[in-house]
């Protein structure tokens, strides 16, 4: 059996955060008695990702996604637990490990601000010790795939956010990493740009059999790229499985769409009416009562057509994300 590209077992990260009330009095008091609070950002998480798999890593703000990605890319030392990426322990930050991964963060800038991106690419060639016969064709190929030929000659400071993100991605992939950690790679970009970057990630994954762990608040990213998702909340994994099964696991309801032949009937006694379009009524019902309510509808109403569906994936994620703000 082949070794998974990413293996995480009982991984923990706890931060010690200084804490005090607002105001001068509290500030003076903290001089003598500093108070700290332990924040468990990641709490005993375990999962494996196979080579070539694209996995969506979802959760509300502060759920522990970025902390996990930082531990897997060697930026943070775990408090406890184990992680291996391509057989390496990330926190050792060995050259052989760092040369085979990349971490792209939507808000991070690794390019030389005052110079054209081409100069930063050249620097990456030297850093990653890429042989020139390999470097030039790959660089040109990536530039073409992301259509940034006219951008890489401008100083980075003159690029828009979206343009900069595209050249950042080119710079991050020049060493042809086998594992990509992508943290909100499409944040702040317009729809066209998001679509282009999604297409590019899929292309890169297919062409190089790269493993991808992706966080995004845009469901379109996840739906387009990931068959499997891991949902994390308060540092714990809530769900790990196929995207299509996410609703089964996390949503406590289903939707029933009913086409009535008579029209106009009040169906509120069967469940929450969440939509009405002519003779078509959409109901939200508790998952465990779906079969009973369906049977009642068929027995008691003039039903022309009836479909039972899991809730849209966007709604499930919105519900999970919403919990983070409670």
């Amino acid at each position: 059996m082949t070794e998974p590209a990413v293996r995480v077992a009982g991984l923990n990260k706890t931060f010690l955060v200084p804490e005090r009330e607002a105001g001068l009095r509290a500030a003076v008091k903290s001089l003598f008695r500093r108070q700290h609070r332990e924040v468990r950002a990641v709490d005993e998480i375990s999962f494996e990702i196979a080579t070539g798999e694209v996995v969506g890593f979802l959760g509300p703000n502060g759920a522990g996604k970025t902390t996990t990605l930082k531990m897997l890319s060697g930026l943070l030392y775990p408090t406890a637990g184990e992680a291996t990426v391509l057989g390496h322990v990330p926190s050792k930050r060995e050259r052989a490990f760092l040369s085979r991964i990349t971490l792209v963060m939507g808000n991070r800038n690794q390019l030389q601000w005052d110079l054209p991106a081409l100069d930063s690419f050249e620097l990456n060639r030297a850093i990653y010790r890429i042989q020139r016969p390999d470097f030039t064709p790959l660089r040109d190929e990536l530039i073409e795939l992301l259509d940034v030929g006219d951008l890489v000659r401008k100083p980075v400071r003159n690029l828009s956010l979206g343009e900069r993100m595209k050249v950042e991605i080119v710079g991050s992939l020049l060493h042809r990493p086998q594992v990509l950690f992508l943290d909100e790679p499409t944040i702040g970009l317009d729809v066209t740009m998001q679509k282009r970057i999604r297409g590019f990630i899929a292309e890169y994954n297919g062409r190089y059999e790269a493993t991808v762990l992706l966080t995004s608040h845009y469901m379109a990213d996840v739906v387009a790229l990931c068959r499997r998702v891991i949902v994390i909340h308060h540092g714990k994994i809530l769900f790990d499985g196929p995207l299509a099964r996410l609703g089964d696991s996390l949503a406590a309801w289903k939707t029933i769409a009913v086409d009535l032949t008579g029209g106009g009937a009040d169906l509120s006694s069967y469940g929450d009416v969440i939509g009405r379009d002519g003779d078509r009524v959409t109901l939200r019902v508790p998952r465990e009562e779906t079969a009973r309510i369906t049977a009642r509808l068929l027995a008691e109403q003039d039903v022309a057509d009836l479909t039972v569906e899991d809730p849209p994936i966007e709604d499930v994620i919105e519900m999970v994300f919403g919990q983070g703000n409670e």
Partner: peptide
Amino acid sequence: RSLFDFYVTRGRTQIQSTLQY
């Protein structure tokens, strides 16, 4: 050798950045 390559390349980019200002 690769470290030398890095120093030369990094030095060059820094010269370019400095000349910008």
